[in-house]
């Protein structure tokens, strides 16, 4: 039982980090934006290039990698998204355009780094940890801690900072926000960069714990979207609650029905939640899908 609870906690925190990052991107774009996957794919490969080809120390690679990923996010925002925003592109167009960028990124990365799996870790086997009868790896403990910090920062940004509050105001009613003088472009870019930082953190943790391939990014997006849909896509708390439900579904699937039913359990849970409460378990009063 201890192991089961530990597994849920580990999985939930990692999915929560993905979910709050995606929820923030959704709050910025009001669309299912594949830039999440593009950044998730690019960040660890940039770190890999810096640490292996440029030969920078690991922590320097991570810091410079974060800066370069944020620069990439800023370029995407200024070139692609501002243009779409100016033309008042509907959410479907934003989604397709971002998907196109993701496909290009996949192919560019495959051409540069090859299709085989790569790993960020440059060390051997880490010794196991046992906490209260539950087994976990060293990296699981580190990534759980980092994910909790990332989620906390995202919640603080959205709920307690001026920039976060302005972002919510600006994206809820663009016309009104413009009329009262909120600098929408700057607010949106800031929000997108915060989301990009969270995505970078999540991707690097997975790159360290598991590995990376040019198809990395899609599965993470699916998990993040599922968590957001279960919890409610219009607020960060909902994303965290959704992540707990996804983790519960995954782990219950493995422990009760067998690993082959893990995905089925999660999506059955999603359908059940959507059937009972279409906008997710925790949804704000103002925002709904497509608004």
């Amino acid at each position: 039982m201890t192991q089961f609870i530990a597994n849920i906690l580990i999985t939930a925190t990692n999915i929560a980090l993905l979910a709050v990052a995606f929820q923030l991107i959704y709050a910025v774009r009001r669309a299912y934006d594949f830039s999440f996957s593009t950044l998730y794919l690019a960040a660890p490969y940039i770190v890999l290039w810096l640490s292996r080809s440029v030969d920078l120390p690991f922590w320097v690679s991570v810091s410079v990698g974060l800066a370069l990923t944020l620069a990439l996010a800023a370029i995407m925002d200024v070139t692609l998204y501002r243009s779409l925003q100016t033309k008042r592109a509907p959410p479907l167009v934003t989604m397709l355009a971002s998907f196109g960028v993701y496909l290009i990124a996949q192919n560019v990365i495959a051409a540069i780094f090859g299709s085989e799996a790569r790993t960020l870790r440059a060390w051997g086997l880490a010794p196991p940890l046992e906490i209260g009868g539950a087994r976990l790896t060293n990296l699981q403990a580190i990534s759980t801690f980092c994910a909790i910090c990332g989620v906390a920062l995202a919640l603080i940004y959205q709920r307690f900072t001026r920039a976060g509050r302005l972002l919510r105001a600006a994206t809820t009613n663009v016309a009104l926000a413009t009329a009262i003088g909120i600098p929408i472009k700057r607010i949106i870019t800031t929000g997108f960069l915060v989301a990009a930082a969270l995505v970078t953190l999540a991707a690097i943790l997975v790159g360290l714990e598991i590995d990376l391939t040019p198809t990395t990014g899609f599965q993470a997006l699916v998990l993040a979207v599922t968590a957001c849909l279960i919890g409610g896509i219009d607020n960060a708390i909902g994303a965290v609650v959704g992540a707990v439900f996804v983790a519960l579904g995954q782990e219950a699937g493995v422990w009760i029905f067998g690993a082959q039913w893990s995905g089925t359990t999660v999506y059955a849970l999603l359908l059940l939640v959507l059937f009972i409460r279409r906008s997710g378990l925790i949804s704000g009063p103002n925002l709904r899908y497509g608004t």
Partner: peptide
């Protein structure tokens, strides 16, 4: 990620 299934 096989860690959950391995502990099971």
């Amino acid at each position: 990620d096989f860690r959950a299934v391995l502990t099971k």
